[in-house]
Amino acid sequence: MTSVLEVKELSKSFGGNHAVNNVSFAVGAGELLALIGPNGAGKTTCFNMLMGQLAPDAGEVLLDGENLVGLPPRAIWRKGVGRTFQITATYPSMTVVENVQMAIMSDKKRLFSFLPYARNLYREEAVTLLDLVGMAEQADRAAAILAYGDLKRLELAIALAHKPRLLLMDEPTAGMAPSERIKLMQLTADIVADKGISVLFTEHDMDVVFAHAHRVMVLNRGEIIANGSVDEVRDDPLVREVYLGGGTVFADKEESENA
């Protein structure tokens, strides 16, 4: 499998504390890769470096062979990396469809146009994207009044606006009800399979991870301690010790396979 994203020996420390230590991995084309680990293991730091919000101390982040280190988030986005946020980040003062139109306007480099009415620009494209995530009926509602699950879907539509090759999703189902979590992840999986997009996501809900991830990586104290299939990771004794625990607070194997 060819890899879309390759991370090589990525490191970052804060005041002597190695938040991310020599982390290397790759995301294959069309792959759904989960990054899990305890709070404070370095997942967020790692994500922020991939997205250009934080400069790594050392290492490379290669998107199709091109180094992204040193680029600001907006430049990384233009290279074809979309993202969703742990706590949804949308534009509450705009309507749902305008939120998506905004991303398309940015993609088409129309940000500094003064003449046209923005609300008429790329509306059809935006509605098509909303249709994809099941939000077309709510296109003209204010984003501020959406239910949380709908906001998450809106974010997904925004992230797809510039036809990315890679999606970075930081806890995509955080704050959602269990049933909605599975649905959203299923929707994401279907869309990325259809469009051939790769996904790297972090998640605390093991039910979501075990049901949808193609592969799972576990980060602990800034280092990858496991990297393999769902079953391998679930049964890894070290992972159980530092992260999963006795397994009493998520669905067991049979349950999750039926989900």
Partner: peptide, 17 residues
């Protein structure tokens, strides 16, 4: 719109170019 986007959510705006 780009101006409002920058105000509403700078993080989202920067992450969309």
């Amino acid at each position: 719109y780009a101006l409002r986007a920058s105000r509403d959510s700078a993080g989202r705006a920067e992450a969309t170019g």
